[in-house]
């Protein structure tokens, strides 16, 4: 009996794992910056949110994503609400894609992801420079978008294994 309850709680924890990883990544700013590679950075939360909202994952609550955005703003030092808006826009984009897609295609999703993150990063850059007079390096944003796009497929493979493990 106790074995069964342990199994259940483990399963619960496993099913909540994506949202837990999202919170850890925003708190920790998971992007391998400590490797000190010039210009190297990528946005892991974007990949995570895009993938799991596209799959309409049951424990990936939009409100929690919104809260994760607020935390990210606090950690990074951006004005409150910027990341929340970005994350929510990704959710809208994936919801729209889900509605118009009949036969999902990984490559199409990938390029759609590139379009969405480019749009969101441009929006972020515009808001920060125009409304908050931040000095930001555009090259940094472009490279961040490029690496986020490049790593998408690697992480998608890992996430697929995770979902497969959950269904089994």
């Amino acid at each position: 009996m106790s074995n069964l309850s342990t199994k259940n709680s483990l399963h619960k924890l496993y099913s909540w794992l994506p949202i837990i990883v999202l919170f850890i990544s925003v708190l920790n700013e998971f992007d391998f910056n400590y490797l000190n590679l010039k210009y190297f950075s990528f946005n892991f939360p974007f990949i995570l949110i895009f993938f799991f909202t596209l799959k309409d994952f049951k424990h990936f609550d939009y409100f929690l994503v919104f809260i994760a955005g607020l935390i990210n703003d606090t950690v990074v030092g951006l004005p409150l609400g910027i990341s929340s808006l970005s994350y929510t826009l990704i959710c809208i984009a994936t919801s729209y894609l889900r509605n118009i897609t009949i036969r999902p295609n990984a490559i199409k999703d990938w390029f759609y992801f590139l379009f969405i993150i480019s749009l969101i990063n441009s929006m972020n850059y515009s808001i920060l420079t125009l409304f908050f007079t931040y000095n930001l390096e555009l090259v940094g944003y472009l490279i961040n978008t490029f690496f986020t796009f490049s790593f998408y497929m690697i992480f998608v493979t890992i996430f697929k294994y995770y979902i497969k493990g959950l269904n089994d």
Binding site: D56, D61, F63, F66, P79, G81, S84, I92, N99
Partner: peptide, 26 residues
Amino acid sequence: RSAFLKKSTKQKFSLLTLVLISVLII
């Protein structure tokens, strides 16, 4: 419309609400 307003049973808030809150906070 579906993307913005449709709130499935497991979601507590619609995405439009969250966008509006974000914009308001900004």
